[in-house]
């Protein structure tokens, strides 16, 4: 296991180099001049030229790439063109906001999704199943910005129960609407995956054996079937968590949440190249770490993976 983990971590390096290189060349190809984002509506060519020289944008693409790689080797993305702040500082300042939102959204997604999925599988073919799956289809299909706007309208403007937006200095009331908005699609998907995975399991002989032994149905479902149905659920949850941690652009914009998603969007709109490169690199690391954690958790959930045995090999 340790050997596998080290191998996976070493694989991070070429992947990160690839991500950074693709980001560099994409930004080079895209139209738009970062210097023009810095100077307002009225400027003179001389100032533009001086800024371009200072930012090495007057050099050939090869020289710029070499300069970029040199800085990348030191994990230094430099300072934002727009704010002048070191890029890593900005990312570390924004990440806590995103982390908080992601954890809350994930908790909602897991609790709601798995409960609804288990319930639907348990009452398979009945009203509960149909309602749960109907709601989940709506959840998957509903655009985030639409749900966000509806929730603000209902809970803030009409019912005056929750604040419409902002971070509110960390008050949990401010977290509820954005977390729920971010979680909805994921929760709906987790519910569907849980249900189908559970249905596969409940048809297995060991479940029938457990029932025949007189194990209570709730225990059969939660302890036996759910545990074995967890692998695909973990995969979905892990991927969603990775994407939540990379910043949720729409949710963060609607709810004026100062996280990484808005930081990245602002950077893209202003062609703030160091900030975009730093943000994309950070997201790549987050995704790889989450994926590694998901893979390692398979072994924890399923002893067959841990011991290298395959199902049916005995």
């Amino acid at each position: 296991m340790l050997h596998y983990t080290i191998k996976r971590i070493l694989l991070f390096l070429p992947i990160l180099l690839g991500v950074a290189t693709i980001t560099f060349f994409l930004l080079y190809i895209l139209p738009g001049d970062p210097v023009l984002s810095m100077v307002g509506e009225r400027y003179d060519e001389e100032t533009i030229q001086k800024l371009r020289e200072e930012m090495h944008l007057d050099k050939s693409v090869g020289v710029q790439y070499a300069h970029f790689l040199k800085k990348l080797a030191k994990l230094d993305f430099g300072r934002s063109y727009v704010t002048g702040e070191p890029v890593w500082d900005s990312i570390w300042k924004r990440f806590p906001y995103t982390f908080r939102l992601a954890v809350a959204a994930m908790a909602i997604s897991v609790v709601l999704g798995i409960s609804a999925g288990v319930l639907a599988a348990w009452k398979w073919g009945g009203t509960v199943d149909h309602v749960a799956m109907g709601v989940s289809i709506v959840g998957i299909s509903m655009p985030v910005f639409w749900l966000g706007v509806l929730l603000i309208y209902l809970f803030s403007i009409k019912l005056h129960l929750l604040p419409p937006s902002g971070y509110g200095g960390g008050s949990p009331a401010y977290l509820i609407l954005p977390a729920f908005t971010l979680a909805q699609a994921s929760a709906a998907y987790v519910a569907r995956i849980t249900r189908s995975s559970m249905l596969d399991e409940v048809r297995e002989y060991y479940i029938q054996a457990a029932r025949a032994k007189g194990v209570p149905e709730r225990k059969v479902l939660v302890k036996h079937a759910l545990r074995n149905a967890l692998l695909p659920i973990i995969t979905v949850v892990g991927t969603d968590f990775g994407s939540f941690l990379s910043g949720a652009v729409l949710t963060e914009s609607i709810f004026a949440w100062p996280g990484l998603g808005r930081f990245t969007l602002d950077a893209i709109l202003k062609r703030d190249i160091p900030a975009i490169q730093g943000a994309v690199f950070f997201m790549a690391v987050v995704f790889m770490v989450i994926n590694l954690a998901v893979d390692l958790s398979y072994a924890w959930v399923d002893p067959r993976i841990r011991t290298g045995r395959r199902s049916g090999s005995e």
Binding site: S156, I157, G166, S253
Partner: peptide, 18 residues
Amino acid sequence: YRIIPEAFTRIAEYESGS
């Protein structure tokens, strides 16, 4: 000064008294 990029959210903040 709060930074609120979306017009709808600014309106909601005003209407909820914030």
